[in-house]
Write a protein that binds this DNA or RNA. Structure first.
Lengths: 367, 367
DNA sequence: ATGAAAGCGCTAACAA
DNA sequence: TTGTTAGCGCTTTCAT
């Protein structure tokens, strides 16, 4: 059952109706070879008339490509990934590609299984977003010469590109913004300790702190788990600190939710008494009380970068994929304000290094 | 490229290695026909050794079935749907099925397109979750004899089953629970006016109110849009009411988030001054401040119901699918408590009809 | 009980 | 410029 209107319609039928051979129809559809203009038009007319689209399954069998990309994510419960999927889908349907989604839940067995599923379905490429990798699954991809893109691995080899998020910039904006508001003691809730994706954001945080001329205090850094409960726990610890921070950044939005919750339970009012900045820019961040200020990754850009990396790989089989970077920018919503007692010390630093207007991006705050 | 370890491995290769014909290998794999036990075992050994799985694309082309189900959802931004996807995936991978996901964004053009995509890929069935349907897309499915399951349509025809959520029970639990806490004025934030899915929950609400011996007041009902902003607006309206409610139910969790936000902005403390109950039971509901009490749908059951409906359709082609019901139960977290000034009027109603203990389900509250 | 052969719908090499 | 043919990997009559 190939095409839409009629349950049975194939190239031979089209060919017959147009008075040509199936091969010619194929040529017209794929735009290859030189088909006489007249013939092409005639065929095209029938094609339109019948609203015919070649059966992708037959093409997949014959030609090798399945016009399907795989997407392997760690966790569909974190809205970041569904939101990526959404954007990725938008891009792919334009090209009549489909997506095969698989979830790993941070489980390496499941990662292997997912990769196998992808191979079995002959995907043309895979976007690999799990936080932790495993050599074996990568090797399977490599063996089968399936192009793949990783996220934030900062590592590329043959048939393999990497898209990484430029946290440095986003974190710098965030820290400068907080500093301008008067914050001096800024904490950070990282992800799982030792995880590469945590490290990246930790480093960006430290760098931004130093870049802003503030002192990095290891006590201000807590580890979480990339989900809300971890953010909650980490924030509770931070609040117990003698010399506690007045503002906290988190390595993702989910943990910021948990942090918000912990603050609420401690009767600390956000943003008046405490400021929070998340990271990711998930749309639900607009729905917290107060709405979450966050370092937002452009999902549209991310999806585009992944897709073009995959397409590039197709056209340059065997070549090492380029590393691509995607920006992230501070999105000011409602969880940030000046600290309770604004630091009175005469500001020797240059006046607002990054004026809020400039920093605020896109989406309007609801307020 | 069929199977995992070696990029090229097909049935002929297996057959050769086992000293039989491809046909026999096929028979062994599919368990059909009577293959001599000895032969079967020998083939099986080679199969295991080579870790061979038949190429699903070839099977799809030949046999018609693609071992793929389609899932069409309205909105991946509402965690309810990714969470369903998660469960559905869990179920499907066991059977070596894959999922094709499509999003409609409430757009009927996109719904049509999605159904087309499904047809083109010869899916074996479709789970249709969009809030609004369009005859055309349903007809396409019907024409092609593709089994499909709808959600909350309460309508089944040939090759088509319906799974519906038993809101009545959940809403009753919620209302009784609130009543026992002392609430008498309970509001409701519905979905988009006129939408079937809104109506269902509205009716469940009204019924529950009356069942609890309370009076249904139309002023206490506001329409939202199934996303947070709508919940926010609706809650603001409700708060402006002269005789405002002390507790509010919402038709989904996302709107409860918005409601929570509006309450926060009005400086009303939840749950001390106002109670909120959502609907859906998305996991992020545990991460709000305070954690959201909600009427939780069992996603595992829902996924299972959809799958078995689809499987049933496969085995009984042309038959009308049965209607299935999935339960939902009150999940008490932290957004509900007695109203500010507990109603002193001597309770004539029977003592706590549904004690909280019994009502509270599963997941522990963080507190 | 097993094998040979045809064919699902498409494309690419080869012929014409 | 176009048509004929073979074959992608599998399943399934039809022979044997």
């Amino acid at each position: 059952m190939p095409s839409l209107s009629s349950p049975n319609l194939n190239m031979r039928a089209v060919a017959q109706k147009a008075g040509v051979s199936a091969a010619t129809v194929s040529r017209v559809i794929n735009g290859y070879s030189w088909v006489k203009k007249e013939t092409a038009e005639r065929v095209q007319k029938v094609l339109d008339e019948l609203n015919f689209t070649p059966n992708p399954i037959a093409t997949a069998l014959k030609y090798g490509r399945s016009t399907t990309y795989g997407l392997i994510v760690p966790d569909l419960t974190n809205p970041f990934f569904p939101e990526f999927l959404l954007r990725f889908e938008e891009l792919l349907i334009e090209n009549n590609y489909e997506i095969l989604v698989a979830t790993t839940q941070g489980n390496s067995e499941k990662l292997n299984l997912s990769v196998r599923r992808m191979l079995m379905r002959s995907v043309d490429g895979v976007v690999l977003m799990p936080s932790e990798f495993e050599t074996r699954s990568i090797e399977m991809l490599l063996n089968h010469r399936i192009p793949f893109v990783t996220l934030d691995r900062r590592l590329a080899q043959k048939n393999n590109a990497d898209v990484s998020i430029d946290y440095e910039h986003g974190f710098q904006q965030a820290i400068l913004y907080l500093k301008d508001l008067g914050h001096r003691k800024i904490g950070f809730i990282s992800g799982v300790s030792g995880m590469r994706s945590s490290k990246l954001r930790e480093d960006a945080f430290k760098k931004a702190i130093e870049h802003a001329g503030l002192r990095y205090d290891p006590l201000m850094m807590q580890y979480g788990d990339f989900i809300a409960t971890g953010g909650h726990t980490a924030m509770s610890s931070l609040l117990k600190l003698g010399n506690r921070p007045t503002a906290v950044l988190t390595a993702n939005d989910l943990m910021a939710f948990g942090a918000l919750q912990a603050l609420h339970e401690s009767n600390l009012r956000v943003p008046d008494e405490f400021s929070i900045i998340g990271c990711d820019g998930i749309s639900l961040g607009a729905a917290t009380a107060p709405p979450l200020t966050t370092i937002a990754v452009s999902q549209a850009e991310l999806a585009q970068a992944c897709l073009s990396a995959l397409q590039h790989a197709k056209d340059h089989a065997g070549a090492r994929g380029a590393a691509r970077r995607v920006a992230c920018t501070l999105l000011v919503r409602g969880s940030t304000a000046a600290p309770p007692k604004a630091v009175k010390r005469v500001t020797k630093t240059k006046s607002p290094s990054t004026p809020q207007k400039k920093v605020t991006t896109a989406r309007p705050t609801r307020k």
